[in-house]
Design a protein around this nucleic acid. Structure first.
Lengths: 155, 155
DNA sequence: GAAGAAATGCATGAATAATGCGCAGGTTGA
DNA sequence: TCAACCTGCGCATTATTCATGCATTTCTTC
């Protein structure tokens, strides 16, 4: 499928942009010892080939009104493709769900959900998740401390 | 502490940059109906005030060699500040840990860990996590499907 | 209502991104 | 082995974007 080659220069560029997506081509060139035009071309290629999927601004969650991070595990009522699809559709429509994964093991899904307070968390669970036809069981844990949140790949 | 005011324009700018951190000031201006210079100034202000904490390139995890995402829950041996600090230090030093949170409830910590394969996952758990003096118990689940991974705040 | 402060858009200069071009090095096929 | 072709490279240039000065408008305070 993909035969894009990633050499050490590419890898270094990816690593740098992963950490700071607004580095200029000149910044990159100083750090990888290529010209800025070569860095521009490589970055473009990495974007076009999809190795760089996009750029995101990282926002201050707490100051924007979301002090609470919650890890919610969900068990489905039944494990058929319809239910799975219904749940996936549900999750896609909920902006407070930042991440959602289907897992091996005892929990079917795990969600990372941000809320302004406990009240809205409670509401989210009891008014949105639990009443949904695909959901059987929900377990909620609140994040006490964030040790790491970079989401960075270990290139 | 912070008395930065965030009006509707700011909020819209934040939302747009959260989705695409490389939008030009001109792009922003078209979408929020302010001039590009005002968008530039507001973006600068939002950055300086820390509401925009930075920018990140999003990379293709699978094509860069990390097809496996793992959710690992960890219980500490004892719950004292030394142990918690030791564990935090450990996590900070492990590049394959993308996210790590201390939680309420039965699991002390939850980690999101990327690995190239099951073998390296197994190695990570048995050679890195479990032998650590602070760690008592480790439970691993593998992500079968990613429903959502935007990490976006619901502004 | 007046004065001062803050926000705004236009115009402009500075900074950055992208691209043309010639060159160097590597690969392929005869 | 050699010539032709391809790819990657940096320099120089062009195109685009960012940041800022300035005059004006809008908002706030007394």
């Amino acid at each position: 499928m993909n035969n894009a080659q990633v050499d050490d220069y590419d890898r270094k560029i990816l690593s740098l942009l992963q950490a700071d997506g607004r580095l200029t081509n000149n910044d990159l060139s100083e750090r990888v010892n290529l010209s800025s035009s070569q860095c521009s071309r490589r970055r473009q290629r990495l974007e076009e080939e999809g190795l760089i999927k996009g750029y995101r601004a990282l926002l201050d969650r707490e100051r924007l009104g979301f002090p609470l991070v919650n890890v919610i595990t969900v068990t489905l009522a039944t494990h058929n493709p319809d239910n799975a699809r219904r749940f996936a559709d549900l999750v896609a429509r909920l902006p407070e769900v930042q991440e959602a994964y289907a897992l091996t093991g005892e929990m079917d899904y795990i969600l990372k959900v941000v809320t302004p307070d406990l009240k809205s968390l409670s509401e989210f669970v009891s008014a949105v998740l639990l009443p949904h036809e695909s959901v059987q069981h929900v377990k909620t844990a609140i994040v006490l401390q964030t040790l790491k949140e970079t989401g960075a790949l270990p290139l």
